[in-house]
Design a protein around this nucleic acid. Structure first.
Length: 467
DNA sequence: ATGTAC
């Protein structure tokens, strides 16, 4: 991206019209011009409050850039957009802390890789062993991770450390198509494909000891991170509502800068229907990660008997949420779209569990396959409607990565470095090559320098089950 | 992201 088109606000934020791009000049320069074009389009949608923003890990997406944040006010004709949430609704990361230490893991590393690979359903169309009835699915849509806990997957203590305590309000199954429901019956408790993974990680650097203590992590400790979403269910809702919202925009005469930005006023039948369906998908994703956490725990217990596994936190990064924010000195209820962006509540936020009230919400930046990840903590004066980066962010398209890399070689190279990848798709491994992503170190550093969140601990991968 | 593509 050509920096001369942007006004430098700070060394880590750049402005163009009503858009703000967060990140240092090197990350912004490396971004596709499309990111600026897309976020500028978003900034012209009705009812936007403040600026449309991109996080340091942003890249080109469908309509909205991935790494995009935009808040809309229903009282000012604000809109909701399916492209502003993404197809994988409520995709996110569940992070588990364990009582295991680095040296204990080494002894059982190959074994846990095999057990996880056998037990965690992963890959395109890979169904799980769990079958739910249509009545159960209705309950899942309303109760999210709470349904999973009530059904024996995990325990109530987990829910305390899941965004919205495992269940969002406003879910309305009546607005979900039969096709979306049908696609989910066999997919509860499955990882999916693409950038999804289940990874065992070693805490190898602590940069904020106080927050690390609150998060219950220490150097050489072992964490498990599960990155996945709402599978075919959310995808189908996204597909269904792109059509419906485009029709609504046309009917209401909204002029859209890009047809991929199909949207409708929050206060319109279609807007309300989308939000009702999207909230069902959030709950499905939260239930999915709860089940997967339980399965992972069973695997860990089989290989490391007596291991303690607790939920550190569960963050979604593809959502639209109604939240209270202070803008220009006034309190407002806003619909905040975060597409490939993590919510990052700061210290003293009333929605945080007591344990994290003082240090702020755990913010997870999931790295690419074989590279590191970061855990950060939310700041009280976050400038982006309490949002932060969600991952390394792609630097290269999937098709280009596929041309450039060979999956098997990527997996072998990582094995040489002691990182065990288990996948059913070598094509996926090529698409997910570490170098097809931005440098997660730069993303985490810029996230901190832009005041979006502050770094707490660096994690390095040890075992990774890829979708 | 996706029972991977109108």
């Amino acid at each position: 991206m050509d920096l001369s088109r942007l006004a430098e606000l700070t060394p880590h934020s750049w402005k163009s019209g009503r858009s703000i791009l967060y990140g240092s000049s090197s990350l912004i320069e490396a971004m596709d011009e499309k990111v600026l074009e897309q976020i500028s389009n978003v900034s012209r949608l009705p009812g936007l409050v403040g600026a449309a923003m991109t996080m340091p890990d942003a890249h080109w997406g469908y309509g909205f850039p991935i790494g995009g944040v935009a808040a809309f006010d229903a009282e000012q004709g604000g809109i909701v957009s399916a492209g502003g949430v993404g197809f994988d609704i409520s995709c996110g990361i569940r992070c588990l802390r364990t009582s295991l230490k680095k040296e204990d893991l080494e002894k059982g590393k190959a074994r846990i890789a095999e057990v996880l690979f056998r037990k965690i359903p992963a890959g395109v169309g890979e169904g799980g062993r769990i079958r739910v009835s249509s009545e159960e699915l209705e309950t899942i849509m309303i109760s999210g991770a709470k349904w999973a806990v009530d059904s024996g997957y995990g325990n109530a203590a987990d829910l305390e450390y899941v965004e919205e305590r495992g269940r969002v309000c406003g879910a309305n199954p009546a607005f979900v198509s039969d096709l979306a429901k049908k696609r989910q019956f066999g997919e509860m408790g499955t990882l999916g494909s693409g950038n999804h993974y289940l990874e065992i990680q070693v805490v190898d650097r602590i940069s904020d000891p106080a927050a690390a203590k609150a998060f219950g992590i220490e150097k050489d400790g072992i964490l498990v991170s599960i990155h996945c979403g709402s599978r075919g269910f959310g995808h189908q809702i996204g597909t269904d509502y792109l059509v419906l919202l485009a029709r609504a925009a046309k009917r209401l005469g909204l002029s859209l800068p890009d047809r991929e930005l199909a949207c409708a006023p929050i206060r319109s039948p279609e807007g309300e229907q989308y939000l009702g369906a999207m909230n069902c998908a959030i709950n499905v994703a939260l239930a999915n990660r709860q089940i997967l956490s339980h399965l992972a725990k069973e695997c860990l217990d089989a290989v490391f008997p007596g291991i303690l596994v607790e939920t550190l936190f569960d963050v979604s990064h593809n959502t639209c949420k109604l939240e209270k924010h202070v803008h220009e000195g006034r309190e407002k209820m806003l619909h905040v779209h975060r597409k490939g962006a993590t919510r990052a509540f700061g210290p003293n936020h009333p929605d945080l569990p007591q344990r994290y009230r003082e240090c702020g919400q755990p913010v997870i930046i999931g790295g690419s396959m074989g590279t590191g990840s970061w855990i950060l903590a939310g700041n009280e004066d976050n400038p982006a409607f309490c949002s932060a980066s969600h991952g390394a962010g792609r630097a290269m398209s999937r098709s280009r990565a596929l041309r450039q890399y060979e999956g098997r070689k990527i997996v072998e190279d990582l094995a040489q470095r002691g990182i065990l990848i288990r996948t059913r798709s070598m094509r996926g491994a090529a698409e997910e090559a570490p170098d097809a992503y931005k440098d997660v170190e730069l993303v985490a550093e810029d996230t901190e320098r832009a005041n979006l969140a502050r770094r707490v601990a660096h994690l390095s991968p040890s075992v990774c089950i890829k979708g």
